[in-house]
């Protein structure tokens, strides 16, 4: 297992991650469970399906919103921020 540890920032706090780990996995390993607030009721959300299907885990990474934290790999120095709303602004389906 590759385990070169590094950190990225989540809402200005340093989160450790391992090489190849998803942003969501690193956050959960640090005890962080939600990184989005829903549009209608303002409820917290994090991982639900874990495999890119449910879009619950959306987060802003390096300024780009709507990234699925469960499928995006973390990189050293990434700036990850809580996302407000579904943030579907530029997504269509």
């Amino acid at each position: 297992m590759s385990t070169s540890p590094f950190t990225f920032s989540f809402d200005d706090r340093a989160v450790p991650a391992e090489d190849g780990q998803s942003v969501a996995a690193a956050l959960i390993a640090s005890g962080i469970r939600s990184w989005r607030v829903t549009r209608v009721e303002g409820r917290p959300r994090g991982v639900f399906c874990g495999i890119g299907v449910c879009f619950d885990c959306l987060v802003t990474i390096n300024g780009s919103p709507n990234q699925r934290a469960c499928v995006i790999e973390a990189h050293p120095g990434d700036v990850v921020r809580t996302q407000e709303g579904a943030g579907r602004a530029d997504l269509a389906c």
Binding site: M1, A25, V47, G50
Partner: peptide, 15 residues
């Protein structure tokens, strides 16, 4: 979490 998410975190991510 879904059961699959918990499994994917464990087997795929070591978490």
């Amino acid at each position: 979490f879904t059961a699959g998410a918990v499994q994917a975190l464990l087997k795929g991510q070591g978490v």
